[in-house]
Computed example of a mutant assay.
Amino acid sequence: MRYADGPTTEVQTRVDADPAAVWAWVGDIRTPCRFSEELREVRWLDADRFVGHSAHPAIGEWETTCTVVAREPGRELAWVVGDPDHPSASWRFTLQPDGAGTVLRQWMRMGPAPSGLTIAITARPDKEERIVARRLEEHRANMQRTVDGIRQLAESGQQPPGESTGG
């Protein structure tokens, strides 16, 4: 598994709530901050762009500008990190009706543009596969915490505070 191959990971959970109730949380781009061990804060720049502030013990703190590339209420929210035409990562939530509930998935792909991970790979090219695998596992764990947290919030009937989908 090499960075240039665009490695991906995906998680899912079934939510005992309809897609509209799940979307109330997915559509609020700040929701993952509640559950991720990395993502600390998100703020909208305009209707389609936001800045995410993250931190990692081995990497430090950083900010990324993200662009929403798909927003279909009740079905999908997707964004890319960095240049929309050549992103360093792509992220997506999808919601699929399932009886009286919803299957919630979160997916991400690394690359194709360089990212913070590129520095570690360049420093230790002989360890690239291990570096990529570890980073994917960190993402997968944070994503699973996020979809599980959204499930709990949606099933509780709570509503997110404030505006959810940009300026």
Rank of each mutant, 00 (worst) to 15 (best):
D85T: 13
L136W: 02
T94N: 02
V15Q: 01
D28F: 00
M1N: 09
T146C: 12
V51C: 11
V132N: 00
C33A: 14
R2K: 13
D16C: 07
V147K: 02
W44K: 01
T13D: 09
P112G: 06
S164N: 09
R135K: 09
E137F: 06
I119M: 13
R92W: 05
R40T: 11
R145N: 11
I150M: 06
W44Y: 06
D148Q: 08
T67S: 13
R43D: 10
T146A: 03
A113L: 06
S88N: 11
A141E: 15
D148P: 04
Q144F: 05
F50K: 03
I121T: 08
G60W: 08
P112L: 09
R135N: 15
L45Q: 12
E128Y: 05
P19A: 03
L39T: 04
A123V: 08
G167C: 10
P57T: 07
S36E: 01
R40S: 12
I59Q: 13
T8L: 09
E38K: 05
A120I: 05
C33V: 14
K127G: 07
A70M: 03
I29G: 04
A70R: 13
N142F: 00
M1A: 13
L104H: 05
E137K: 13
R14C: 11
M110Q: 10
R75H: 11
R2W: 01
R145T: 04
G101P: 01
V103P: 05
W62G: 06
T67V: 09
H53A: 14
A120P: 00
R49K: 13
L77V: 10
T31R: 02
V68H: 05
V80R: 04
R14P: 02
T64C: 11
V132P: 01
G82M: 05
M110V: 03
E41Y: 09
V26W: 05
P32W: 09
T9I: 08
G157K: 09
V68K: 02
V42L: 08
V22A: 06
T102H: 08
Q12L: 12
G6D: 06
L117C: 10
F35V: 00
L136Q: 01
W91Q: 04
L39S: 09
R109I: 06
A120N: 06
E163D: 14
R124A: 15
A120V: 10
G101L: 03
R30Q: 09
R140W: 04
R124S: 13
R2T: 11
S36T: 05
G74E: 05
A17S: 10
M1W: 08
T165V: 12
P97L: 04
F35P: 00
A24K: 03
R140I: 04
E163W: 14
Q144S: 08
G149V: 11
V15N: 00
A120E: 12
A154H: 07
R151C: 07
G60I: 06
T94Q: 07
R40E: 14
T65E: 15
F35K: 03
G60L: 11
T118I: 03
R14F: 14
M108C: 12
P114M: 03
G52M: 02
R130Y: 11
E10C: 02
V26N: 01
G167S: 15
G99N: 02
P87D: 10
Q152F: 00
E61T: 12
A133S: 15
T67E: 03
A4Q: 13
I59R: 13
T165Y: 10
T67C: 07
A20H: 07
R14N: 14
E72D: 14
V69I: 15
V68F: 00
D5A: 10
